[in-house]
């Protein structure tokens, strides 16, 4: 398939971009940063194009649906969201440091999708439960939330590294700025996760006959939601900052990963991703 081939190329582009971001850290002031940005933009553009091709292909091989309906497609879309959100943040804060943490996430997700033999990349038709208009809004909001939490995770790591006195820490942005951006990413992710849970509930109400069935994925999305709610309350009222906040962003991301991947090993209703 053309889209899958293009995506495996994009994987290398993302790796290249990550490499350039690293060089940018080691040799600041040179043009590595600009190259890194444009490499990742190019990768993102090709990634978007591949998604569109795949979308088009679903009309050829199936009845036509947004290409976010199985594990492969979800990995590809996750990676796309991480890269897209990162590029937005970079443009906004005018600092490229987060690229060192975000691009490898986008790269790893896409590499897993493209090169793992256990991930099936063919276009599959939709089983009856997935034939719903809620599919798009549910998956879209959930993965935007995942992407925001991934960036927060990158920022959390950055915060800890910036704390150690070293050559790298001098290149990192101010810790206050990391802290503030981390908070904004989590707030954004939290709003999207809430939306994702609610759209999922509405869909479940129509498809499974119950807006909430304590299916492991539902339960874990709630756990993730609670962890980030904990973060936001701690910050809002008790002014949790710095290490505490950064630590919670790591815990939260572990929950995201378990919600996304871990629950596949538990029995439940969300079995499309297996």
């Amino acid at each position: 398939m053309m889209d899958a081939k293009l995506l495996s190329i994009v994987t290398f582009v993302y790796f290249g971009a990550f490499f350039c971001y690293l060089l940018h850290v080691i040799f600041p002031g040179r043009w590595w940063g600009t190259i890194a940005t444009w490499t990742s933009r190019l990768g993102f553009f090709a990634h978007t194009f591949a998604l569109l091709i795949r979308w088009r292909l679903t009309y050829v091989f199936s009845t036509g649906h947004v290409p976010i309906t199985n594990f492969y497609e979800s990995l590809v879309f996750f990676s796309w969201s991480v890269c897209g959100l990162y590029l937005l943040v970079e443009a906004r804060i005018k600092n490229r440091m987060l690229g060192v943490f975000s691009l490898p996430i986008a790269f790893l997700l896409l590499a897993y999708a493209s090169f793992s033999p256990s991930v099936e990349s063919t276009i599959q038709p939709l089983i009856p439960a997935l034939q719903s208009n809620w599919l798009t809004s549910h998956v879209l909001t959930c993965f935007l939330a995942y992407a925001a939490f991934s960036c927060a995770f990158g920022l959390g790591l950055m915060y800890f590294i910036a704390g150690k006195e070293s050559i790298i820490s001098r290149l990192l942005p101010q810790r206050d700025m990391i802290d503030e951006l981390l908070y904004q990413m989590i707030a954004l992710g939290f709003v999207f996760l809430t939306l994702g849970i609610f759209t999922g509930s509405v869909w479940a109400h129509y498809a499974w006959g119950s807006y909430w069935s304590w299916d492991p994925k539902e339960t874990w999305s709630l756990i993730t939601w609670l962890v980030y709610a904990l973060f936001l309350h701690g910050r809002f009222v008790r002014n949790w900052r710095g290490k505490k906040a950064a630590f919670l962003s790591l815990v939260g991301f572990a929950c995201v990963l378990f919600t996304y991947l871990g629950v596949n090993y538990l029995p439940g209703l969300h079995t499309y991703l297996r």
């Binding site: 339960t219 874990w220 609670l226 629950v263 538990l266």
Partner: peptide
């Protein structure tokens, strides 16, 4: 108390899935 309750809820959720 809120933080404690949110934490307990998360723990109950974890138990409920395992």
């Amino acid at each position: 108390l809120t933080l404690a309750l949110l934490f307990i809820l998360a723990v109950l959720g974890i138990i409920g899935t395992f």
